[in-house]
């Protein structure tokens, strides 16, 4: 995984999370090892985030793959696989 590419994606991902999520939190502290569970999404907010992530990166993710991910780093990996 390209370290520079990863950090650029992480910055964009944080921006999406900041805009999409209802909950207030320190999104700048989100790191690749941050677990998805700790971000506090529910079955609705996860959909908002997925929609906005796809729009931000201009790609279509396979939803079943996304729900298998456990960390932000795995999401970044998926985005890179799809050409982000």
């Amino acid at each position: 995984m390209d370290g520079n590419g990863t950090s650029q994606i992480l910055v964009r991902l944080r921006d999406v999370l900041r805009d999409s999520a209802v909950e207030e939190r320190d999104w700048d502290a989100v790191a690749p090892e941050t677990t998805i569970e700790s971000l506090g999404f529910d079955s609705l907010t996860i959909l908002d985030v997925l929609y906005d992530v796809e729009e931000e990166f201009g790609i279509a993710l396979e939803p079943k793959q996304v729900v298998k991910t456990r960390t932000v780093g795995e999401i970044i990996g998926l985005l890179q696989q799809h050409g982000a």
């Binding site: 529910d42 079955s43 996860i46 959909l47 939803p63 079943k64 996304v66 729900v67």
Partner: peptide, 14 residues
Amino acid sequence: KYDPDPGRFIKLLG
């Protein structure tokens, strides 16, 4: 309606 697993609806449709 409420469950700790946020991805369960997506899995079910998948």
